[in-house]
Each structure stands twice: as structure tokens, then as C-alpha cells.
């Protein structure tokens, strides 16, 4: 395509000469080649980044696993790498990560899905155009600010709520640091990830399907739940997966508001550390390479990477399996 027209009219000799000149121009040819090669290198650099991530995580963790058996890492129930008699059980950190993620999803998935259905099926066009960018600001707020908000606004407020006379008997006692408030705030942060992508997926469902449902006497709600939602499931699933991997990898909110003590518990009202919060706690200040913490954060990081990668792969498979082409 880039070599220009194949054969011009032979009558104009000058023109012909110009074109053969261009075609034969070595500088022109090589400049194009070199530029293409450089651009390819830029695109390929992203693969180098992934390789860098995987190789560093694996090689640094390899040293860790020479000292700690994989069995101890996965079954031991305490995580105290800095103690004199160190214990290396990742379970408390994984539990903390899963619980904060669970709380966040309990907030974000229902609210995000309802907002998506509302914006795509109910809201008038003008309203949607205003609400969408405002909601997207929720994911633009820096997470450290959310951490401040969870610790100094949401936690005191939840405490007050839980100590109301008619609730105090049913509600757990809330610590100053708790996975619950960190999780709730994290959930609100990921609402736009869920709602925006789900809404895009639902809006790409063709109108014909909706009209079919209306013709059978369905109202908007039934059409949304029984027709639009299932048809957009692959896109909605991708949105959910994105929300989950954001929640698993989220760091500052939990590091600030959930406490930093590894704590194997299933009670969200308690403080606990997550994988990410542990990494932050250890690497505050200059972390010497020889210390016990250095290898441990890479083993923890590898676990985190495997977890998010797992969810991303599941998401990829779901998307392929349930994709509906219109």
C-alpha cells in the first residue's frame, strides 16, 4: 500500500522518472524500516515489563522458598517473619485480603449493577450524561484520601451506628481499625468500575430483544433482569472481574484503615492485615536487602500476583464462553 500507484501512464516521462526515483530511494526505504522497527520495540516493551515482573517475583521468592517450605507457607496460621522464631504462614494475610475484598464486593456489585441497569434502561439521556462522569470521579479520588476517609469518618460513624440502643445487641464491637470500614469504602471506590462497564455492555444489547420482551407484556424491570442482563452477561462479568482484581490489589485504604496486624479471623469487624498492607508496612523507609522482610514481601507479592492473575484468567474464559455477538 505504501509503495504508491503501480504503473503511471508512460506518456509523461517526467512523472515516470519521479516515481522510479521514489521507489528506488534507499533513504526513504530505510527510514520507514527503522521507524517501524522502533515502534515495534515500543510495543514489545510491554512484554518486557511483564517478563520483568514475573522474573523478579519468581527469583526473589525462590530464595524465600529455599528457607521456608511451600507446605509451611500455605498451611501455617501465623505470619511473623520478623520474629526471632519466624513463622511464615500466608493464610492470615490471604484471609485479610479475601475478607476486605468480600466486604467491598458486597457493597460494589449490587449497587454497581443497580446503577448500571438504572442508567442504561431507566434514566433519561441528559441525566445519564451528567451522572456518569460524576460517578467516575469516585474512582479518580486517590486511594490514600479514601484511607483517611475510612479511618477518620466512616469508622467513627459506623461505631456510633452500631452502638445505637436497638442495634447494640446485634452488632459486633468495632475496633478503631477494622476490615469492615476499609472494605465498605473500597466497595464505594470500585462502584464506577462495575457500573460503567456493565452499563456499556447492557447498552450494546440490541433494541429488538427489549421490544420482543415488551411485546410479551414484560415491564422494564422484567426486561432488564430476564433479557438485558443475561444478554450482556459476558461484559458484566468482565466488569465484576475488574472490580474484584482492583479490590484484591488495593493497598492504601486497607493499610490505613484496616490495621497492620496479621490476624487470622473471619470477623470483618476486627482489624487485620492484608497482603498489600503487609508489603507497605514492611517497606516503609529503606528496606535492607538482607533483612527477613525483603524476601517475605516478594513471596507475599507473588501470592497476590497469582490471585489477581487467576481472576483475570477466569474473567477471560467467562468472556469467551458467554460472548454474544450481535
Amino acid at each position: 500500500m505504501s509503495t504508491g500507484p503501480s504503473q503511471p501512464a508512460p506518456s509523461e516521462n517526467g512523472n515516470q522518472a519521479a516515481i522510479t526515483h521514489l521507489k528506488g530511494s534507499a533513504t526513504r526505504y530505510w527510514r520507514e524500516k527503522i521507524i517501524q522497527y522502533l515502534l515495534f520495540l515500543a510495543a514489545f516493551s510491554s512484554v518486557a515489563v511483564t517478563t520483568g515482573i514475573v522474573v523478579t517475583l519468581l527469583s526473589e521468592s525462590a530464595v524465600f522458598f529455599q528457607q521456608v517450605s511451600l507446605w509451611e507457607f500455605l498451611t501455617e496460621t501465623t505470619w511473623t517473619p520478623a520474629f526471632d522464631e519466624p513463622k511464615h504462614g500466608i493464610l492470615p494475610l490471604v484471609a485479610g485480603t479475601l475478607i476486605t475484598t468480600g466486604v467491598a464486593l458486597a457493597v460494589a456489585l449490587p449497587i454497581g449493577t443497580i446503577i448500571a441497569i438504572y442508567l442504561s434502561e431507566y434514566a433519561p439521556f441528559a441525566l445519564r450524561e451528567i451522572i456518569k462522569p460524576i460517578l467516575e470521579l469516585l474512582s479518580a479520588v486517590p486511594t490514600v484520601v479514601y484511607g483517611y476517609f475510612a479511618l477518620l469518618f466512616v469508622t467513627p460513624w459506623l461505631k456510633w451506628l452500631f452502638e445505637l440502643p436497638f442495634l447494640v445487641d446485634y452488632m459486633p464491637e468495632l475496633d478503631a481499625f477494622s476490615m469492615l470500614s476499609a472494605g465498605i469504602v473500597m466497595g464505594i471506590m470500585i462502584i464506577p468500575y462495575v457500573s460503567s462497564l456493565s452499563e456499556d455492555a447492557m447498552r450494546s444489547v440490541p433494541m429488538l430483544l427489549r421490544e420482543g420482551a415488551y411485546a410479551l407484556g414484560a415491564n422494564k424491570l422484567i426486561t432488564s433482569i430476564r433479557v438485558v442482563y443475561p444478554s450482556a452477561l459476558s461484559g458484566i462479568g468482565a466488569a465484576y472481574i475488574l472490580g474484584i482484581s482492583r479490590a484484591i490489589g488495593e493497598t492504601m485504604i486497607v493499610a490505613i484503615a484496616a490495621g497492620m496486624q496479621p490476624n487470622l479471623t473471619w470477623n470483618p469487624a476486627e482489624p487485620a492485615s492484608t497482603i498489600t498492607a503487609y508489603i507497605v508496612q514492611v517497606s516503609k523507609g529503606e528496606l535492607p536487602r538482607e533483612g527477613p522482610g525483603y524476601k517475605a514481601i516478594f513471596a507475599a507479592g507473588l501470592t497476590l500476583f497469582v490471585m489477581t492473575l487467576g481472576f483475570n484468567i477466569v474473567g477471560h474464559i467467562l468472556r469467551k464462553r458467554y460472548r454474544e455477538a450481535y
Binding site: 512484554v47 511483564t50 515482573i53 490489589g249 498489600t276 508489603i279 516478594f298 497476590l304 500476583f305
Partner: peptide, 21 residues
């Protein structure tokens, strides 16, 4: 595929890579 996956890698992992590398 690699670029799509990179977008899903938690930011703290980039920090670990930078620390080591």
C-alpha cells in the same frame, strides 16, 4: 493479551519489581 493483563496487575507489584530490579 499482555497489555490487557498488565492493566490488571496491582500497582504494588510494579513497586516490588522496581525495588528488586
Amino acid at each position: 493479551i499482555n497489555i490487557a493483563n498488565l492493566a490488571g496487575v496491582p500497582s504494588i507489584i510494579y513497586g516490588l519489581m522496581a525495588l528488586s530490579l
